[in-house]
Simulated assay, not measured.
Amino acid sequence: MGDADEIRFGMVGHGHISGQFLAAMEVVEGAHVGAVAGRNAERAKAFAQAQGIATGYGSVGEMLQAEQLDAVYVCTPHPSHEEAAAACIDAGVAVLVEKPIAPNLAGATRIVEAARYAGVFAMEAMWTRFLPIYGVVRRWVDEGRVGDVRLVTASFGFAAPVMPEHRLFDPEQAGGSLLDVGVYPLTIAHWLYGSHPVEYGAFALVGETSVDEIVSIAAAYPGGGLAQLGCATVATLESSAVIAGTEGSIEVPVFWAADRAILRAGEHEEIETMPHRANGFEYEIEEVVGCVRAGRTESESMPLSLSLEMAGLCDEIRARLGVAYPFEEGSD
């Protein structure tokens, strides 16, 4: 580790989401971003200068060789997560990999096995799992405030223009709604029920570029709980998650970035609000900082086993939908 008072991050990738990460980093104590790497050195250096980062590099390898880093945030397009993560792990540097950790289970498994073998911290950046409001939601559920939970509904969808070369619609970049935003409703259902579904049906609108543009999932979980989940890149979907029980319900508006929850039971309504200090990314960054300081190799809140489960489930769903990526073995 570098300076004991600071956790020094590097970033691989400097697209839109990197700006959200940097904005959140401003409120995290004891950590800062000291370097960024991209596919083009000049663009990376220009981004670094614009963002007040010390320097930029044309590859993750150059950055790792030149810098003393404690952790690296990988936010490149999905198919390049594995290469960047592997380089960091080989260098003994902790890694936070943007979701999905890899486009499929095979890639996710290679990252996880490499991290575990090397004893290096690795975590998928599923930031929703660290939002404080979910502590309130969990307490309400555990206290039986809504009775026995019977159904969770959650969807995440937006209407983007269909551009075949854009990462959302390009199969070479693991495009589609499932990996980009479908993991959010799948994750909240898993968080609520503590398991992936035991049975489910999945249906999709597969577009002209052969990626899933809209996905609808009906699922059953151990213990009898049900879920209705959806995702889309070509349609705006309802943004609230609703947990419905035998005695009431909990609504979580904009559930993937939530700072508010509403409990309704009979005529009683209770609202809890926990505003983010920045944009919500700060909580997953603080998890990485805490784990690196403590010498942990996995997060208890977002373990690598969960990343493997989600990658496997998404593989299964895509297989049912007939969606495969050109870089996958056995794809046409």
Rank of each mutant, 00 (worst) to 15 (best):
E29P: 09
P161M: 01
E124V: 05
I7T: 02
Q49L: 13
E282K: 02
A108P: 02
G330A: 01
S307Y: 00
E83H: 13
G157M: 07
E113T: 09
S155K: 04
H268K: 06
A174Q: 08
E328K: 12
E42H: 06
P275Y: 15
A258N: 00
T55S: 13
I250G: 03
S80I: 12
L69Y: 01
E26L: 09
Q51K: 14
V33E: 04
R264V: 15
W191C: 06
G15L: 10
W191Q: 05
Y193M: 01
T209V: 08
S216N: 11
C291I: 04
K45T: 03
V242K: 02
A50L: 10
P132G: 03
V97S: 08
N104V: 07
G280S: 05
D90N: 15
F121Y: 15
S155F: 04
P103F: 10
G92L: 02
G34K: 00
G290M: 09
R110L: 13
M126V: 14
S216T: 12
A159Y: 05
Q68W: 00
P100E: 11
V120M: 12
H78N: 13
G290I: 07
L304K: 10
G194D: 09
E172G: 11
P164G: 09
A106N: 08
L304M: 15
L151R: 10
T297G: 10
F9Y: 12
A114S: 10
G207P: 09
D142L: 08
R116P: 01
V60P: 04
E199V: 00
Y57G: 04
G194A: 07
H81W: 13
S305E: 14
E67I: 02
